[in-house]
Computed example of a mutant assay.
Amino acid sequence: MKFTVSNLNKFLFFKLPSAYISGVRVKQIEANKCVVTVKHRWINQNPFNSMYFAVQAMAAELSTGALVMNHVQNSGKKISMLVANNKSNFTKKATGRITFECLDGDLAEKSIQDAIVSGEGKTFWMKSIGTNENGEQVSEMDFEWSVKSK
């Protein structure tokens, strides 16, 4: 699969339908940056009239995972990838359209290359920042990815 916004959103529909139904969409993908958005709606709300934390986590994870998937594909090698840990910090109610941005693509690329050269598994943390339409941070999520050459 070529890594384009359209193909990633098709991937969501077929492979991660709960994220797609919740409104998670990729808006931009580059070698070192991925932007994912999700709008607060009835289907993804919590009882406090804001976006459910798990929906934010799906969007944030996708912003990191799409970068890992892209660099795995670019390596031309068979690489397994898995989220080993995650940490979250919520600073404001998530209402309106929330944008998650990850700028750690270079870290994923380096770790994948290290795993290929060493033949051992590598772990690395990637950060995704969620902001509302006013540019205010609503959440910060860190995902520890594990990659290993097969």
Score class of each variant (00 low, 15 high):
48 F>L: 12
2 K>S: 07
99 T>I: 09
124 F>Y: 15
112 I>E: 13
49 N>F: 14
73 Q>H: 10
114 D>S: 14
123 T>A: 08
36 V>R: 03
134 N>S: 15
41 R>W: 00
4 T>Q: 07
118 S>F: 13
99 T>D: 04
16 L>C: 07
66 A>E: 04
138 V>M: 02
59 A>T: 06
129 I>S: 04
15 K>G: 01
58 M>I: 02
84 A>F: 09
103 L>E: 06
37 T>C: 09
105 G>R: 03
149 S>W: 13
120 E>P: 10
134 N>C: 07
115 A>T: 13
33 K>D: 08
23 G>D: 10
49 N>W: 13
18 S>C: 02
49 N>S: 14
147 V>H: 03
120 E>Y: 14
143 F>K: 00
63 S>T: 04
103 L>G: 01
109 E>M: 15
38 V>E: 00
18 S>L: 10
126 M>P: 06
133 E>K: 04
108 A>Q: 06
106 D>G: 15
11 F>W: 11
9 N>V: 05
63 S>C: 03
92 K>E: 08
2 K>V: 11
117 V>A: 15
112 I>R: 05
23 G>R: 03
93 K>W: 12
42 W>Y: 12
140 E>Q: 09
139 S>P: 07
148 K>W: 12
129 I>A: 01
21 I>A: 03
52 Y>A: 02
44 N>I: 03
111 S>G: 10
41 R>F: 01
74 N>W: 12
114 D>F: 12
21 I>C: 02
125 W>N: 11
143 F>H: 01
22 S>Q: 09
43 I>W: 08
51 M>L: 07
102 C>S: 13
63 S>A: 07
117 V>Y: 14
55 V>N: 10
29 I>C: 13
124 F>L: 10
23 G>Q: 02
130 G>M: 00
17 P>L: 06
131 T>D: 06
6 S>D: 14
83 V>L: 09
134 N>Y: 11
80 S>L: 13
18 S>N: 08
137 Q>Y: 01
71 H>K: 11
6 S>E: 15
18 S>R: 04
127 K>S: 07
99 T>V: 06
94 A>C: 08
33 K>T: 13
136 E>M: 09
11 F>L: 06
43 I>Y: 09
49 N>A: 13
49 N>P: 05
66 A>V: 10
92 K>G: 08
95 T>S: 08
5 V>A: 13
126 M>T: 04
145 W>P: 02
6 S>F: 14
116 I>F: 12
19 A>T: 02
93 K>H: 08
109 E>R: 13
110 K>E: 14
133 E>T: 09
144 E>W: 07
12 L>V: 02
78 K>N: 13
4 T>H: 04
100 F>A: 02
44 N>S: 04
76 G>M: 05
76 G>D: 08
80 S>F: 10
12 L>W: 00
30 E>L: 12
109 E>Y: 08
77 K>G: 01
116 I>Q: 11
50 S>Y: 10
42 W>A: 00
115 A>M: 10
60 A>V: 06
10 K>D: 14
99 T>Y: 05
51 M>R: 02
135 G>N: 10
54 A>G: 13
49 N>I: 09
80 S>M: 14
84 A>K: 12
67 L>H: 04
67 L>Y: 05
86 N>D: 11
16 L>N: 07
91 T>M: 12
80 S>Q: 12
6 S>W: 07
